[in-house]
Each structure stands twice: as C-alpha cells, then as structure tokens.
Simulated assay, not measured.
Amino acid sequence: MTPDPSTVHPLSAHERVVFLKPLVDGTKVVAGDFTYYGDPDGATDFAQRNVLYAYGPERLITGKYCGITTGTRFLMTGAAHPSMGALVTEHARTIMAGSPKDIECIAATEDLEQQ
C-alpha cells in the first residue's frame, strides 16, 4: 500500500519521520510527494531549522522521492557576503582583535610578500 503524501507522519509509530510536502508552503521550499525527513528533535520544523538564509527569491526544490537525514542544512544564497578586497567580516576582526585598518595593512603586506 502506498502512503498518502499529504500525511505528515507516513509511519504513525515514528514521530521522527515526516513527509515534507504537507509541512512546507511552497514559497521557499518545494517538496516532492514522497520526500521525507527524519529528526528525533523536531522533524516538523524542517523549513525553519534546516533551510538557512532563505532571504532572496531562490527556492529549495526536492525531487519526488528524496530522503533527507538528521542534521542536513541547506544554505541558501542569502548567506553570501560581498567580496570587498582586503575587508573582512566582523567575526574575523573579533578573533584577530584588530581594527579594520590593522587588517588592511596586514593584507597589503601579505600581498607584497607574495609578489
């Protein structure tokens, strides 16, 4: 017997396994009829917990028969940062404990050494 793709839990005894199609709205995530996801810590929260940086027009589209395992994360293009030469992100500045000017000087020195 084929499971009903509109059912959230295709295996009623296993809450950790869900069909994604009835859980997503089709705007940012489009799931195939029998695409399933397994997670013991909240499988029904797939789109919120596993599709990251979905800020732009892009969409995650899965095939009709896909299995997605616990912990899989999809990083959408909203995670992309523009490249601006020697400038780095705030996180790197914090780790290095330097000012943006210090980092630019270091980058310029390294460029000279490589030439």
Rank of each mutant, 00 (worst) to 15 (best):
P22G: 04
A31L: 07
V30Q: 03
P5T: 05
G98H: 06
F74S: 07
V24S: 02
A79D: 03
A107I: 01
E104K: 08
E15V: 05
A97Q: 13
L11K: 08
T89L: 10
N50Y: 02
T77C: 11
A92R: 04
L75F: 13
A79Y: 01
D33C: 10
G67M: 10
A43F: 03
G63Q: 07
K64L: 14
F74A: 09
M76K: 05
P3G: 06
I95E: 12
F19I: 05
A92V: 12
F46N: 01
T44F: 06
R49Q: 10
Y37N: 00
H14A: 13
T2I: 13
R16T: 07
I61G: 05
D33S: 14
Y65K: 09
F74E: 05
G98C: 08
I103N: 09
I106H: 04
M1T: 08
V17S: 06
I61E: 15
P3A: 07
V88M: 03
Y65F: 15
D102S: 09
T94D: 13
L11Q: 06
G42F: 07
P3E: 09
L11R: 11
F74D: 02
L112T: 01
K21H: 00
S99G: 10
I61P: 04
G38L: 01
E113T: 08
M96P: 03
K101V: 13
P57K: 13
D41Y: 04
L11Y: 14
L20V: 07
G56T: 15
S99P: 06
A47F: 04
R16C: 09
T89K: 05
A107K: 07
K64F: 14
M76Q: 03
T72L: 11
T44V: 15
G26F: 02
Q115D: 10
D25Q: 04
G78R: 10
D102N: 11
R49M: 07
T94I: 12
G38E: 13
V24W: 00
M76L: 15
E110S: 02
T109N: 13
T109P: 01
K21D: 00
L52G: 11
S12I: 06
H14C: 11
R93Q: 10
A79T: 06
D25Y: 10
D102M: 00
D102R: 10
T7K: 06
A79P: 00
T62Q: 00
G42Q: 09
K28A: 02
M76D: 03
D41A: 08
D102W: 09
D102K: 04
T77G: 15
G42A: 06
L75W: 10
T70C: 10
M84S: 15
F74P: 00
Q114F: 12
D33H: 06
D39S: 05
L20T: 01
D33L: 06
P57L: 09
